[in-house]
Design a protein around this nucleic acid. Structure first.
Lengths: 171, 171
DNA sequence: GTCGTAAGTAAAGATGCTTTACTCGCTGCT
DNA sequence: AGCAGCGAGTAAAGCATCTTTACTTACGAC
């Protein structure tokens, strides 16, 4: 038995309780991403969308060619190339000669990108900590969040394998 | 203490366990939506994207003008008008004279749209039932899903209010 | 050498929105 | 009656972000 009955002190039917799991997930994700972007902007790291952050993460460990980046992001190499063009123009990545030669070029993050990544990580962790405090009233703090993470991780692994397919910014 | 340790029989670090809550939510949502769309297609209801389903839901209870639809979907009225144009061409909605007169036109669902909604609902419920069975191994069936739904609903209500802002198909 | 393969680039097209700017039908005032 | 104004609807252009198609270039194998 869950504490479902205590989750909403108000009277009347709860539209959210009847919502499909899929939509609940979508709402939660969208709200968190929205809050994330807003805070990042207020912290002086505006002008970049979540998709750019995903690219930064894909390049974090030693960079990659734009074709590798394309694969990690789940887009065509042309799309990745355009993304790299834009990020290069704005000073977040550099194209360096690739050790393996060929036509390859290694795309690496600049200091600006690393600063952005750090700020983004901080915002995400702060956000998660706030959520932890507000979740699962009545239980010990953090327990509800841990359970939520466990169930979500299991769900993702069941449906998407490990590692799961890339997150795409449109559905 | 959760059954986290039993969730992954393999050795080595678990990349998903270290993932941010936000990304877990995104992955779970995207995977479910993807599976939903694939099944709906296989059931003979292909060619419509999730956004169309959202429009159907917004029109389900007695229809609406396209401006009302725009508000419910969180887009401009022009975008809603284009959406209605397309759905009308494909036989999913009709524009009828509006009882309140003016330039208003009431957009209502056709039988085809209602059939689509029914099929979509069935797929969603089936999917949710499957998820319920695979979640929270070791607990009584359904308990993990109920807890997940509770926590998600609470999270959504905290961040987005009630009802939450419209789900947008891009972030 | 030349052939195949993979990386990268170029250009056009598709899509799904927004912005800007208009027309039309009604209400209410004077 | 006449007209100001408002909200619904429509039209067209612009824009961002992707894909598709098609090419060029570097290297390795044989």
């Amino acid at each position: 038995m869950t504490d479902h009955a205590t989750a909403r002190p108000e009277h009347g039917p709860d539209p959210l309780a009847g919502a499909e799991l899929t939509f609940l997930l979508g709402w939660a994700f969208q709200l968190l991403i929205g809050e994330f972007t807003a805070r990042l902007e207020r912290a002086g790291h505006g002008g970049l969308r979540p998709a750019h952050g995903l690219a930064f993460q894909a390049l974090r460990a030693g960079g990659a060619t734009s074709s590798e980046l394309a694969q990690r992001l789940g887009v065509t190499k042309q799309a990745a190339g355009q993304l790299v063009d834009e990020l290069e123009r704005r000073g977040y990545v550099r194209r360096e000669p690739h050790p393996a030669g060929g036509r390859r070029r290694l795309v690496v993050l600049t200091e600006a990108a690393h600063r952005h990544l750090e700020a983004a990580g901080h915002v995400l962790r702060t956000l998660e900590a706030e959520v932890a405090g507000r979740l699962g009233a009545g239980k010990e703090p953090g327990a509800a969040l841990a359970g939520l993470r466990d169930e979500l991780a299991r769900l993702v692994r069941e449906l998407g394998g490990d590692p799961p397919p890339p997150l795409r910014p449109v559905w």
